[in-house]
């Protein structure tokens, strides 16, 4: 385990893409491919990354890359892996990059199947908390209170009323070989996890939070900062699951102010102090569980 800014491959594998300026998802894909290297075979469903990377004749992947159906990221990876294995190929890594909708909603069946079979693939969910490619519609990973184009914030309903589904724990519950959460605000941590996951024989999963300036209503230069702050204020956590046990990579001694994180994003600007208090309470309740889960023994 030695990857860092100095040892990282200098070649760029995801280059020339048409993602919005300051795109968190593009950063996650770029870094993961630089960690895995030229023998990565990327599978990317319909969504932002395929829309910005594969516009013939502007084709932005220097490694092998293929667009899958929206629901079929994991199943296509399964097939690619099976095909290469059957043909006797060696030294490759099949890696998927799907968004939150592609993973937690339409693609969860195929993902569950791949984990169940323990196919030798790495699945990376870049989570920007809504269907950004189609114009910021709610997914099951949209956080409580967020305004999207299908959960508008008005007098009657203040944005999304559901709390974010915990994909990391859902995946871990399969008894997967390795899974982790990450944030593009903490790239060293993300790189470590990609390197580890890529080295594992069997299914591995990384859930990386990747803000979308366009959908979240933040400035393009704030993307990384916000991705860091969501971890620092405790609304997202960095953890791993391996050999049946959970490990927390970062336990902030004191959380930064949730209100500061919320107030800087347009998608939350309708929220009152009461609702921000509610979100803070949700955070505290989650951390009580996390502390029990990770530190009770």
């Amino acid at each position: 385990m030695s990857v860092n800014v100095n040892t990282l491959r200098e070649d760029e594998y995801f280059f020339g893409h048409k993602a919005c300026a300051g795109c968190g998802g593009a950063l996650a894909v770029r870094i993961a491919l630089k960690v895995i290297g030229p023998n990565a075979i990327a599978t990317i469903p319909a969504g932002c990354m395929s829309a910005v990377g594969f516009n013939f004749p502007q084709l932005c992947f220097k490694n092998n890359a293929i667009i899958s159906t929206f629901a079929g990221t994991a199943s296509m990876m399964t097939g690619i892996e099976a095909g290469l294995k059957a043909l006797g190929k060696k030294d490759y890594k099949v890696v998927g990059f799907a968004g939150d909708g592609g993973t937690a909603d339409i693609g969860i069946q195929a993902l569950s199947g791949a984990i169940d079979r323990n196919d030798d693939v790495l699945y990376i969910c870049y989570d920007n908390e809504a269907y950004m490619n189609t114009g910021i519609q709610k997914s099951s990973l949209t956080p409580f209170g967020a305004r999207t184009t299908t959960t508008p914030a008005g007098r009657n309903i203040k944005g999304n009323q559901k709390v974010k589904k915990n994909m990391f724990e859902i995946v871990a519950a399969h008894g997967i070989r390795y899974c982790a959460t990450a944030s593009i605000g903490y790239l060293q941590d993300f790189m470590n996890k990609v390197e580890k996951a890529a080295s594992i024989k069997g299914t591995s999963y990384i859930h990386v939070l990747a803000p979308c300036p366009t959908g979240w209503g933040i400035k393009t230069d704030e993307c990384v900062e916000v991705a860091k702050e969501v971890v620092d204020c405790g609304l997202w956590y960095l953890a791993e699951y391996e050999h049946g046990t959970y490990r927390l990579n970062r336990r902030p001694r004191e959380f930064t102010d949730v209100a500061h994180y919320i107030r800087r994003q347009d998608r939350f600007k309708h929220l009152s102090d009461t609702e921000i208090k509610e979100i803070t309470l949700q955070r505290d309740a989650k951390w009580q569980l996390l502390d029990k889960q990770y530190f009770s023994k």
Binding site: T69, S75, M76, T78, G79, A82, L87, Q109, G113
Partner: peptide
């Protein structure tokens, strides 16, 4: 022989395998 979890996955996996020349 891949035991897929749906027909959508059956053909999606077949496409993946065919896409590497299998």
């Amino acid at each position: 022989f891949i035991h897929v979890e749906s027909e959508h996955s059956a053909l999606s996996a077949a496409i993946g395998a065919s896409a590497v020349g299998a």
